[in-house]
Simulated assay, not measured.
Amino acid sequence: MIWEVFRQEEQGEYHTHCGNVHAPDREMAKQFAAIQHGRRKPTNNLWVVPKTEIGELDGDEYAFGGATDKSYRWATGYDVTADDASEVVESSGEQEDAKERRNEVV
């Protein structure tokens, strides 16, 4: 069975993948990881995980990177056809004026 090994160099830092070990069970995998990956560099902590337990999230399946559409910050991104949207309409006009002034400066 293949076990993936993640090493933490100093307390508080992230664990990084440093390799794998072949072992029949968890205890042997921990021992092999300590010998092969824990003694070569300064090591605070090791994570030893069965390779079959590691899941992958593909960028084609999921959108990573957070919300890049920030139109919610501007009144122009809202529906202003409602009767109670007078403040939004006023703000929209102010933001359009500000946008024109920014373009004039550049």
Results as ranks from 00 to 15, higher is better:
residue 75 A to S: 05
residue 37 H to Q: 15
residue 8 Q to P: 01
residue 35 I to E: 12
residue 39 R to E: 14
residue 31 Q to L: 14
residue 17 H to I: 06
residue 52 T to P: 05
residue 63 A to V: 03
residue 102 R to P: 06
residue 97 D to K: 10
residue 106 V to A: 15
residue 103 N to L: 15
residue 15 H to T: 03
residue 83 D to G: 12
residue 63 A to I: 03
residue 38 G to R: 06
residue 5 V to H: 03
residue 4 E to P: 06
residue 64 F to S: 00
residue 69 D to Q: 05
residue 105 V to A: 11
residue 75 A to T: 00
residue 73 R to Y: 13
residue 43 T to M: 03
residue 2 I to K: 15
residue 59 G to A: 09
residue 63 A to P: 02
residue 11 Q to K: 12
residue 75 A to F: 01
residue 22 H to L: 15
residue 15 H to P: 05
residue 41 K to S: 13
residue 70 K to C: 13
residue 34 A to K: 10
residue 3 W to V: 10
residue 25 D to V: 05
residue 54 I to E: 00
residue 35 I to R: 13
residue 46 L to C: 08
residue 50 P to S: 07
residue 63 A to C: 06
residue 48 V to C: 03
residue 76 T to L: 02
residue 63 A to T: 04
residue 64 F to H: 04
residue 11 Q to W: 09
residue 42 P to C: 12
residue 44 N to F: 07
residue 106 V to E: 04
residue 106 V to F: 12
residue 11 Q to E: 10
residue 59 G to M: 04
residue 87 E to W: 00
residue 103 N to C: 12
residue 93 G to A: 12
residue 41 K to Y: 13
residue 70 K to D: 14
residue 28 M to N: 11
residue 36 Q to W: 04
residue 5 V to E: 01
residue 21 V to I: 04
residue 64 F to R: 08
residue 35 I to A: 13
residue 36 Q to N: 14
residue 14 Y to G: 01
residue 69 D to W: 02
residue 18 C to K: 00
residue 56 E to M: 15
residue 43 T to L: 02
residue 60 D to N: 11
residue 58 D to Q: 13
residue 98 A to D: 01
residue 44 N to V: 04
residue 37 H to S: 12
residue 66 G to N: 00
residue 86 S to G: 05
residue 4 E to N: 10
residue 30 K to I: 13
residue 28 M to H: 11
residue 56 E to V: 15
residue 27 E to I: 06
residue 81 T to R: 06
residue 17 H to P: 09
residue 86 S to N: 09
residue 73 R to C: 14
residue 26 R to V: 11
residue 16 T to R: 08
residue 68 T to L: 06
residue 89 V to L: 07
residue 1 M to I: 11
residue 55 G to F: 11
residue 50 P to R: 03
residue 63 A to K: 02
residue 11 Q to V: 07
